[in-house]
Design a protein around this nucleic acid. Structure first.
Length: 492
RNA sequence: GGCAUCGUGGCCGAGUGGCUAGGCACAGCUCUGCAAAAGCUUGUACAGCGGUUCGAAUCCGCUCGAUGCCUCCA
């Protein structure tokens, strides 16, 4: 019996606003699509948080025994800078600024994206399709939407007719907006607009002569609109009905709303069963954003070179920090918060390392299966990783107590505890062990060990002046001695 | 202006009608020659004001404050 049959997973569906019991379209299989990055600059931490949340979701599905097809796209066709301007897209703009080919921009930042995600220990998605690789499919869906009468052509561009759509379906149901309200609150657009209505959005845009990225189409040379690629690629790889569509909260409107409209216009129904939205990561209480400059690059955290940070933090510390908050909550990043997370992370890792050495008893004082189920309950409750982590610290306490002989753990329970902890910490949360002290070379290790021996001899001789001198001088060099029951160890 | 979300102990962050997580910091204790490290123990908080209820951080209303979306963004 697969694990997913024993666990009742509930997911908060953004569309219904409720937690719903998860039942996949096809028994034993999960289809999941997540909106990926637009690769025109380095990925920032906010993106990482969203993808990390879905990485954890993906990992949990796998752990439960589902066969998962996880599709996360790369947007390499750019999006329009502004609906009202000449229709220049981000990627070609960047390419012109940097005097390189658009695909060179795409290549550079796709590589950067993958490098960062690898450091964070992300599992690669099953398919990572690109927008430019699906131009033909996008043109096909535009044709179909035109045939159904939910779009119109104007001067080589094609626009989605939101009002017509809204009369047959319901535009705005995901983001809780009503079309009438949106019409009433439309801002004045300064540039002339060839759209029939301001709410309409582009499915295809005519390319101006200076536009570099362009493809031929029945409406002339141009490029696809902002929202089309996700509709096309999700249904192409996951089918006309699939389980999960995820993305950042800021994509709810208009991006996901438009995706629903396109799909309903084309297929008569939305393909998505469960909409999941990951919340924002803020910095100094403000949203991180490429455009406002209030952002922090992952590599700046790993290297500690940003004024808001007092030190460098490893990818696993950042991951632990993020997993301590629920994915639907706004999380504020600060140096203090990272510092606290780092200590918690070390405590957890230290306890895991101690697990091997704890003594075994005849019987257990703890109900390990009940604990294990509490861990699953946390994850089953819309992937509540903070609660899971709280449970993990419960286990940390047991490990310490057992080690001191204040609590009993049977051999079976010890094995069970170890495998459970490995599953929850490493497989599902995706946290990694700290890198073993490779920075201390054999020479340094030998030197420090020698000093430790000399100090211990001084202590045995009650020559505390010498002992303390060794300890304090090492401390000044950043080497901390730790006196334990089993002798002295050190940390750089 | 419109539409949302949120406001929890010193900090971060779960909980969403009664059983009131967890991490960090602080304090006490154990250990130690003294420290540090490590471990143990301790914290009754939910923006304000009303209301519903036997009972509210949790539901409803108002007020104040913060943030997000409404334009490309995870």
């Amino acid at each position: 019996m697969a694990l997913y049959e024993e666990q009742n997973l509930r997911i908060y569906n953004s569309l219904s606003g409720k937690k719903e019991s998860f039942t996949p379209v096809h028994e034993g299989h999960v289809g999941m699509y997540v909106c990926g990055p637009t690769v025109y600059s380095k990925v920032h931490l906010g993106n990482c948080r969203t993808f990390m949340s879905f990485d954890m979701v993906y990992r949990y599905f796998l752990h439960l025994g589902y066969k998962v097809r996880y599709v996360r796209n790369i947007t390499d066709a750019g999006h329009l800078e502004d609906d009202a301007d000449e229709g220049e897209d981000k990627i070609s703009k960047k390419a012109r600024l940097e005097k390189i080919e658009p695909m060179e921009v795409v290549q550079r930042y796709t590589t950067d994206f993958h490098n960062i995600l690898r450091k964070f220990n992300f599992l690669p998605p099953s398919i990572e399709p690109t927008a430019t690789g699906h131009i033909v499919e996008q043109i096909e869906i535009i044709k179909a939407i035109l045939e159904k009468g939910y779009a119109y052509e104007k001067n080589g561009s094609v626009y989605f007719d939101v009002q017509k759509f809204d009369s047959d379906f319901e535009y705005g149901k995901l983001s809780g907006r009503r079309l009438e309200d949106m019409i009433a609150n439309t801002r004045e657009l300064t540039a002339q607009d060839e759209k029939n209505n301001p709410q309409d959005f582009a499915l295809w845009k005519r390319a101006e002569p200076r536009h570099i990225m362009r493809w031929p189409s029945p409406w002339g040379e141009g490029f696809p609109g902002w929202h089309l690629e996700c509709t096309v690629m999700s249904t192409k790889y996951l089918g006309e009905t699939f389980d999960i569509h995820g993305g950042g909260m800021d994509l709810k409107f208009p991006h996901h709303e438009c995706e629903i409209a396109q799909a309903e216009a084309r297929y008569g129904q939305s393909p998505v069963r469960y909409w999941m939205h990951a919340n924002m990561l803020t910095l100094n209480g403000r949203k991180m954003s490429k455009s406002t400059g209030n952002n922090l690059l992952p590599e700046e955290i790993f290297e500690g070179n940003n004024p808001i940070l007092s030190k460098a933090y490893s990818p696993s510390v950042v991951r632990f920090f993020m997993m301590q908050a629920h994915y639907t909550s706004i999380l504020d990043l600060s140096d203090d918060a990272l510092l606290a997370a780092e200590k918690g992370y070390i405590r957890l890792m230290d306890a895991l390392a101690l697990l091997d050495s704890i003594p075994i008893s005849e019987k257990s004082d703890v109900d390990l299966n009940a604990w294990k189920q509490r861990c699953y309950d946390a994850l089953n409750d819309d992937f509540n990783t903070p609660i899971l982590i709280a449970q993990l610290f419960e286990a940390v306490k047991w490990i310490h107590l057992a080690r001191e002989g204040r609590q009993n753990l049977s051999a079976d329970d010890k094995t069970n505890l170890e495998s459970s902890l490995n599953a929850f910490v490493f497989d599902i949360l995706g946290i990694q062990k700290p890198i073993a002290g490779t920075e201390a070379s054999g020479k340094v290790d030998g030197l420090v060990q020698l000093l430790i021996d000399m100090r211990n001899k001084a202590r045995a001789d009650k020559d505390y002046a010498t002992a303390d001198q060794i300890r304090d001088t090492l401390a000044e060099l950043g080497i901390q001695l730790k006196d334990g029951k089993e002798g002295t160890s050190y940390q750089l």
